[in-house]
Computed example of a mutant assay.
Amino acid sequence: MYGHVRAITKKQPIHMIKVSVYRDTALVDHAYTDTEGRYDLAIPAGDTVTVRFDTHETLNNARDWHPSVVANVVASDGVPFDRYLLPTGHAAAEDSSVDALSGYLFAAGLWSDSERNAPYAHTAASRLSGLKQTSRVLQDIQQRLVEYFRTPEE
């Protein structure tokens, strides 16, 4: 499985996005995008997986991009799997907002409250807080996610 990750706004490549592949919620493999936004993972062709595109809380770009997740992807050797991410601080069309919120929802489901990834939760709450929604339903989902990700120190 390979492809490119770019910004939805200017279509420029995004460096250091973590591309993670899961079967259910079990991590199969991950890679980071290079300076051209490219990634390459050794996933057997034909496997049905979920692919998550997100920043990593320890990197300089941890607060710059909203995540994206795509479920029921059939891995292929011959067809690139490209993704466009929404930068934080930008107004989002409803489809981009749903995509970003889905990425956060998937991340929230990866761990129980007792094993919560506090550094990720902190950056997620910060990124989510700046996502501008026009839909009342999406605003409600966003607020619930912000509350979920907030760490006790905030």
Rank of each mutant, 00 (worst) to 15 (best):
Y2A: 05
G3C: 10
V5D: 08
V5P: 13
V5A: 09
A7W: 06
I8D: 05
I8S: 14
I8F: 06
I8G: 07
Q12N: 14
Q12I: 08
I14M: 12
H15E: 01
M16D: 13
M16Q: 11
M16A: 03
K18R: 14
K18Q: 11
V19H: 00
S20C: 02
D24V: 04
D24S: 05
D24L: 09
T25K: 12
L27G: 07
V28E: 08
H30V: 01
Y32P: 02
T35S: 10
R38L: 09
Y39H: 07
I43K: 10
P44V: 06
P44E: 07
A45R: 11
A45L: 00
T50M: 08
V51S: 05
F53W: 14
T55F: 10
T55S: 10
H56Q: 05
E57H: 14
T58D: 08
N60R: 15
A62K: 15
A62W: 11
R63T: 05
D64N: 15
H66V: 07
H66R: 02
P67C: 05
S68L: 09
S68G: 06
V69R: 02
V69M: 01
A71N: 00
A71F: 05
V73R: 00
V73H: 00
V74C: 02
V74I: 13
A75Y: 01
A75E: 08
A75T: 04
G78P: 01
G78F: 10
V79I: 08
P80Y: 00
F81E: 12
D82S: 04
D82W: 06
R83F: 12
R83Y: 05
R83M: 15
R83S: 07
L85R: 06
L86I: 09
T88S: 07
G89H: 02
G89I: 06
H90D: 01
H90S: 01
H90M: 01
A93S: 05
A93E: 08
E94N: 03
E94Y: 04
D95A: 03
S96W: 11
S97Q: 13
A100N: 02
L101E: 01
L101W: 04
S102Y: 03
S102H: 09
S102W: 05
Y104C: 09
Y104Q: 06
F106T: 06
A107D: 00
A107H: 00
A108N: 00
A108I: 01
G109I: 01
L110Y: 01
L110C: 07
L110A: 02
W111G: 10
W111H: 12
D113F: 12
N117T: 02
A118D: 01
A121Y: 08
H122A: 15
A125V: 15
A125F: 14
S126T: 14
S126R: 14
S126Q: 15
L128Q: 02
L128S: 04
L128A: 04
L128N: 08
L128D: 03
S129R: 14
S129C: 11
L131H: 11
K132M: 12
Q133D: 02
T134L: 00
L138K: 14
D140Y: 13
Q142K: 15
Q143H: 15
V146N: 03
E147D: 10
E147F: 04
F149S: 05
F149I: 03
R150G: 00
E154I: 10
